[in-house]
Design a protein around this nucleic acid. Structure first.
Lengths: 196, 196
DNA sequence: ATAAAAAACTAATAAGTGTTAGTTTTGTAG
DNA sequence: CTACAAAACTAACACTTATTAGTTTTTTAT
């Protein structure tokens, strides 16, 4: 049978991970089988083990790639010198960009992290907790400096993160609304509301 | 072995469904086994089949219970006679209430509907589509009547629905923030923003 | 107390799981 | 051309899955 196409997508392992993300997204991690994954690569299941260690390693690779991407970015934004509102806006826009560019992997990291094994599960949750904490601190600082209304910072962060995460469901409407409108309108909604 | 406790939670079938929702939430539908479910009920797996037809029937029951609950409610709100902003506020508050009261089932309906079999999958997605369309129409009307800023209605609905859905992640903070604050701050955020 | 119905049990089945072992084919360097 | 390494293959294993059949226990109604 044919070999795994490597093309310009990086090493064979990376190609497998990418296909795994697509499959895990559409069928969920547990329901997706290694035989199915192999089929999308034009190969028998045992052949995959020449390139990867295990099924759960694939999930780990996906989750930590995305987790680290967000961690790195929020640190950069945190240390930049602008207003707090501008920082929050930058974070929202980063979420939207990353979501639309790495759709499958972000989706899987958001939905399937539950199936990570220890100690990876704990590590992943810590990354997320740190991310959220950074954001909460930012909102708190914004309130102190009168850039942001008095509001519960945990609720505000939950609202923002949940809203951007909802882009998972965007696909269907992609045709009708440009990414720029999507981005601008969502930023504006989350910062300034929709009441006329 | 002991019989399934029926208590005041309704019929035995309903007790099974409730436990199934709890299990499907924590382990996901595919990863949760009937043996595990039976164990939480103090019974052997085959005994469940005296009360239910199949595993997937449990998922159907959960998803359509929640789907119908939301459909009924949005129709009521739609036909009430108040401002559009008030209607949207009522919808947001209804989401929060339902989410916090039927946590397991809402969680499962949101996360595991993918594993519904046809024709139930199609039916469920239609219910959701109708729900969203009703909301989009509401936002469009609000814009026409100058209650709501000019903005893409699909983006606004996505933002609102995603934000309230994010209450799935609320558990941890339950202690620090009262439900009233949670509700008021989120409503205020989604309607009026957070910029000072 | 007794008959009928409900609901539990044990045993088993067929299908599907991730993964390993051992072997053969394919690609690459000298 | 030949040797070596990479990567495919087939066959198989140990396990888990949802579900069925058949039987026994428990509850309910007369």
């Amino acid at each position: 049978m044919a070999k795994i196409l490597t093309s310009k997508n990086g090493t064979k392992k990376e190609v497998i991970i990418q296909k795994a993300a697509l499959l895990f997204k559409s069928k969920s991690y547990t329901a997706a089988s290694m035989r199915e994954l192999a089929e999308t690569l034009g190969v028998e299941a045992p052949s995959l083990y020449n390139h990867i260690g295990s099924k759960s390693e694939l999930l780990q690779a996906i989750c930590f790639k995305i987790g680290n991407k967000f961690s790195v970015q929020i640190e950069m934004i945190e240390n930049s010198s602008t207003t707090i509102i501008a920082k929050i806006e930058a974070i929202i826009r980063f979420h939207i960009h990353t979501m639309l560019e790495n759709f499958d992997e972000v989706y899987v990291a958001n939905h399937e992290w539950k199936h990570l094994q220890e100690p990876f599960l704990t590590d992943f949750l810590n990354i997320r907790r740190n991310y959220e904490k950074t954001l909460v601190n930012l909102v708190e600082a914004g309130i102190e400096q009168n850039e942001i209304k008095k509001t519960n910072p945990y609720v505000a962060v939950l609202t923002i993160l949940s809203a951007v995460r909802g882009l998972e469901f965007w696909q269907r409407n992609k045709k009708n609304v440009s990414q720029q409108v999507l981005e601008d309108d969502m930023v504006n909604h989350l910062l300034n509301g929709i009441t006329a």
